[in-house]
Write a protein that binds this DNA or RNA. Structure first.
Lengths: 210, 210, 210, 210
DNA sequence: GATGAATGAGCCTTCATTCAT
DNA sequence: GATGAATGAAGGCTCATTCAT
């Protein structure tokens, strides 16, 4: 057991070592320009070793995507623990998403990459782990909405569907950052984003009470 | 005279011929796997000829993106001419977006590709033409919203900002199609999409008590 | 006659037009990076037209070499007309060579290019014209030396052989400019060059008289 | 231990194998017409393998240049060990240069290529290695001259500057071989070269009356 | 005389992946 | 477990030259 455990721990350490190198390079040179050979050199390992731990280059990037989703999850989770109303939580979640896309631009890009690419999904385990990470985040949004509906803050919507819409809207809007100087004609992207978040939540409020 | 004109027409025909080949391949193999050499072979032209008409690979894809944006524009424009209320127009626009992403999946992918890629835009003229196409579409959405606000169908929102939000939300949600079998846990993507569109428009309606 | 003459004149004008463009580009981008297409565009002519006046790209550069040799010739010729002794003329010729390699660096490079390249000489006429230009220059040097020998300024050397040596030495030394910061270890190239010219001439003086 | 050493030796062998192929081709087709693909084919290696050992095409040619400079160095070094006076050493060096340019024409061409090309040098290490080779040779010439000045064979000249002049003259004259049948008008190039060497050394001798 | 569209072989270089050691 | 040399297909792109109009 002890041996086996140690082995396992060492294996994890190596994987981390590789991921560290990959992350570094990816953040410096972009996803397209990062090659396995570079990762190997940076990680001070042989290329063969990389392939022992990861089946392919894509698998490494998947692992990185996991990291990104974890960071995003923890940030939204923290919001969930705050003592504010469901509307506040959604609002902060929205702003957190924009923040995430800025402060962790590279993680956002990687998530985006997999979302925009005609995926060739690899191993099942990997796939499921990513799905799980995604679901966890959706669950948080779902929870915020559900609570709001339950306590009357929001009108009666389908929490899960609304959560998806919310996330989708956030994601699409975030991407539009790129259009700031062109199609958006100088409108400040952050303002638009914030405005949108507010509209989205406002539209969730019951109509009568107001 | 006639000669010059004919020349010009032939030149345009060649450009189309190249675009046809590029579109074909792109739609079959994806943006990353389509190479200039393949395009040339498909178009039954020399590689040099391709470069005579297009400065780079990227320029070809931009041209294709233009095509996609044109199609999208025409579809939404048609909606604008219908004799329905602004809310109906927005709703149909939403559904048209989903429809576009399905029927013209590859055009959607190209648009998405440029939105998701940390692209370095090339020539200014090219850039501006694309921008113009995008702006035209946004203008349509802007117009729908503006009309609705004017005639009281909608509450008082900033039409342009709302248009951006609307488009962003549609775009993000469309991308989520990919999550249908995983994170969305079997929920029908189209249902979610439709639901979202309705929510978005519903949130735009005036609060009753007001 | 008149017609024929005009034709000829126009033809020469076209050739100049092409040469002007080629020179411009060559001086800006170097010999390797200047393409016929670029020359054509710059000259506002079709590529085919270029080929009507010049058989090949190389031929254009030959013509440019001619220009360079002409400039060099005129400079040395002017020295020949000065009222100074043969030693002074040789000295000034040496310095003029260095000056030429600096002020007309690109012409010097082109001469150098043909000297360093395993030539595939083209048409005979062209070849002979270049040869003539070269011989003219050598003749000047020859004359300076011959005069010096005749009037006792120099000791009795073979003027023609000495002229070749002189020119060869100048040329080789000029090329060494490139080594200024490396092999020459910071020694000022111009100083070395001047020193060499002086040595070369000094070695030509009669030994007895001194 | 043994393994590591053997690996290293094999690696060196591969580099030699590549250089052999490159040399062969270069000597047959000239520097401009030798491509990496051809080298790979000739060396019976994959293109990638070439790039595993050499960073670029230029690096290979630098390596070849090193070889040439080494040969030249050894030949002059051997002259230095002879029991002849400094004037004899310089004379033999001169003739050795001509000999080198004939027997190792291609090496001479490479050296010339780098001297005549407005090269942008690459890595510093590479650059320094070449510089070192060049300096070594200059040092030999410098030494010959210095000795001659010290023992009274030569008059008092700056040994280093004279060495540069000597080399420069030799180099320039060697290039003029090409003009043998044209500008030189049938004069035997070798004769001229020999004559020049003699003049150069003669001019170094002390003036009698002094 | 002038044009310029068309060519296509060839260029240098990259890189994910394999496999013998 | 780890290594790293070797691969070779494929990438985007250039360019001197030709020839039908």
């Amino acid at each position: 057991m002890g041996l086996k455990e140690r082995r396992e721990r060492e294996k994890q350490a190596r994987k981390h070592q590789i991921l560290d190198a990959a992350r570094h390079l990816l953040f410096k040179k972009g996803i397209q320009s990062t090659s396995i050979n570079q990762i190997a050199r940076k990680a001070e390992l042989g290329v063969g070793t990389i392939y022992f731990y990861y089946q392919s280059k894509e698998e490494i990037f998947y692992a990185l995507q996991e990291e990104g989703l974890d960071i995003l999850f923890r940030q939204i989770e923290a919001i969930g623990r705050k003592s504010i109303g469901p509307d506040g939580k959604l609002r902060e979640t929205g702003m957190a998403y924009l923040d995430f896309s800025r402060r962790h631009k590279d993680y956002f890009d990687i998530i985006n990459y997999f979302l925009a690419t005609p995926t060739v999904m690899l191993g099942d385990e990997l796939k499921q782990r990513i799905d799980h990470k995604g679901s966890r985040i959706l669950k948080l949004l779902d929870g915020f909405t559900r609570t709001g509906v339950a306590d009357g803050t929001f009108r009666s919507v389908d929490p899960k569907k609304y959560a998806v819409m919310f996330w989708g809207a956030l994601h699409g809007l975030t991407q539009f950052k790129k259009l700031e100087n062109t199609v958006l004609e100088g409108e400040n992207h952050a303002h638009i984003f914030e405005y949108a978040v507010d509209q989205l939540i406002d539209g969730l409020k019951p109509k009568k009470e107001r």
